[in-house]
Design a protein around this nucleic acid. Structure first.
Length: 266
DNA sequence: CGCATTTGACCTGCGC
DNA sequence: GCGCAGGTCAAATGCG
């Protein structure tokens, strides 16, 4: 009967392990959910704040432009209808080029000085694929010369050759002058409460220069995550701490493997 | 030489 | 119909 009792002990030990792993799995899921929620919150906050900034800009532009054909709300609707999206791109203020590195290849086909803004507006067509209908307009912000306003129209009929560079231009530091770029999507939320403080978000997780980027925002109002239990100042810090934790990595890998294979822990 | 950029001319749409 | 402003075209130019 010794064999029987030892098997029973083994089964109990395995059940204990299984219970531990279940709890670990639950906590991991909880953490993932919390991080997802925080990301969504930050994203929606950014969009709202950016549109508030754009609202001011548009108000100024419409005051200056008697030929304005759309109201602010109409602008918002048109943005959705015609598949246009607008991004604020922070660049080196000394950089006079209107180049926005977004992972696609663009051919410039025109430049025009508009009435409401002394900075010229450049017109680009996507040249990565023949027949790609996407166009973009790039113009410096009237209020902040270090900010480029990039307006994209249409949808690409191909993929970016560099998916990492797509909308992650701060990764690309080799471009002439474009050494410090942050993208801020400016679309969809129809709220235009004036706010004097635009915000930018550096979406890269590239470590050291994140600190500089976050403190070097347009107005020092870059978003930082006050973190889990006040321990982590930024999501990046939290993620970095997690990725450095060997136990976390191993547990996460095991949990993911179990989820993928749909198998209980042995 | 081929390709991208520049830039003046031209086209288009809208308000008056 | 005219004028204005944004958008596009295409010849000229520059660069590798």
């Amino acid at each position: 009967m010794d064999a029987h009792s030892s098997n029973k002990e083994k089964a109990e030990a395995l059940q204990e392990d299984l219970e531990c792993m279940r709890k670990e799995n639950e906590s991991l899921r909880f953490m993932l959910e919390v991080m997802t929620r925080k990301c969504n919150t930050i994203e929606s906050h950014l969009r709202q704040r950016n549109l508030e900034y754009m609202g001011i800009d548009l108000n100024h532009q419409f005051e200056a432009n008697k030929r304005a054909r759309t109201s602010i709300n109409e602008f918002s609707l048109a943005t959705n209808k015609s598949q246009t999206s607008q991004f604020l791109v922070r660049t080196n203020s000394k950089d006079s080029t209107l180049v926005v590195k977004d992972g696609y290849q663009w051919r410039k086909y025109g430049q025009k000085v508009t009435k409401d803004n002394p900075s010229p507006r450049a017109y680009f067509r996507c040249s990565m694929a023949p027949g790609c209908p996407v166009k973009k307009k790039v113009q410096r912000s009237k209020d902040d010369k270090s900010v480029l306003i990039a307006t994209y129209e249409g949808q690409h009929n191909h993929d970016s050759h560099d998916s990492h560079a797509h909308f992650s231009p701060s990764i690309n530091t080799s471009a002439k002058g474009a050494e410090h770029i942050n993208f801020v999507p400016a679309e969809s939320t129809p709220t235009f409460t004036p706010s004097p403080q635009p915000i930018t978000l550096d979406l890269t997780l590239s470590g050291s220069n994140n600190q500089e980027n976050s403190s070097g925002g347009l107005d020092g109002n870059s978003v930082s995550d006050r973190g889990f239990n006040g321990k982590y100042n930024k999501i990046e810090d939290f993620v970095a701490s997690l990725t450095k934790d060997k136990n976390f990595t191993v547990s996460l890998a095991a949990a993911v493997a179990r989820c993928v294979t749909n198998q209980p822990k042995p």
